[in-house]
């Protein structure tokens, strides 16, 4: 028996997850994960907390999300029709696209000529930030909890007081000749 078509909340979650996964792709959480396409090893933007960040009204994009979800699925339907792709009804249209199709559509939406570009840039920006700076969490706490993005990037852990210091920081030797016009102030003369 086929599951019922997704409700509004499920549509919102699945669609935004699929968008975030297109920006920073990750591996599926389970074999039947539809939102995450599984295009890259390791966790991606979704598991890094993209939906949590997008749901925070400090971003300024939260109120627009229902509309963006609707638009994205409309674009997905048009994209599928254009390319003769079959969309199954079990998931929202954008989620029904494969990873390559999602990527091609997002590229189109982020193109400098696209009239809605500004909104898709924001959605991409915050999806990215969830992964590469965990902007929805205190950085030290996110690191301590093994935040997937910061951890994959190799972001250093702070000292025990929660502050970063790098006592080892320099090769400690001259590595190039100075410009011949350098003056005492360190600028060029």
């Amino acid at each position: 028996m086929r599951p019922d078509p997704p409700g509004a909340e499920q549509t919102r979650v699945l669609t935004l997850e699929a968008f975030a996964d297109t920006i920073v792709p990750g591996e599926k959480r389970s074999p039947d994960d539809r939102a995450i396409a599984g295009a890259a090893p390791g966790p991606g933007a979704v598991e890094a907390g993209a939906l949590e960040l997008l749901a925070w009204d400090a971003t300024g994009i939260t109120d627009a999300l229902p509309e963006l979800v609707g638009l994205l699925n409309e674009h997905a339907r048009a994209f599928a029709a254009e390319h003769g792709a079959e969309l199954d009804d079990d998931v929202p249209p954008f989620v029904a696209l494969d990873f390559g199709q999602r990527t091609a559509l997002v590229q189109r939406l982020l193109d400098p000529g696209h009239p809605e570009k500004e909104f898709w840039v924001l959605l991409a920006l915050f999806s990215n930030m969830a992964y590469d700076s965990a902007a929805h969490r205190h950085t030290a706490e996110a690191l301590a909890d093994g935040h997937p993005g910061l951890t994959a990037m190799g972001f250093a852990h702070p000292d025990s007081d929660g502050l970063w210091r790098f006592p080892e920081y320099s090769y400690g030797r001259a590595l190039a000749d100075l410009h011949p016009d350098t003056i005492e102030s360190g600028s060029l003369g």
Binding site: S170, Y171, R173, A176, L178, P180, E184, S185, G186
Partner: peptide
């Protein structure tokens, strides 16, 4: 004030070394 080479962080040192390798000068920035 001008930095000396002991003030220059690893990324700055790497850039200086790459510049020197390509025949360029490189300056610690005031």
């Amino acid at each position: 004030r001008t930095q000396d080479w002991n003030d220059v962080s690893y990324p700055g040192g790497l850039w200086a070394a790459a510049c020197a390798h390509a025949g360029h000068t490189a300056n610690p920035v005031p």
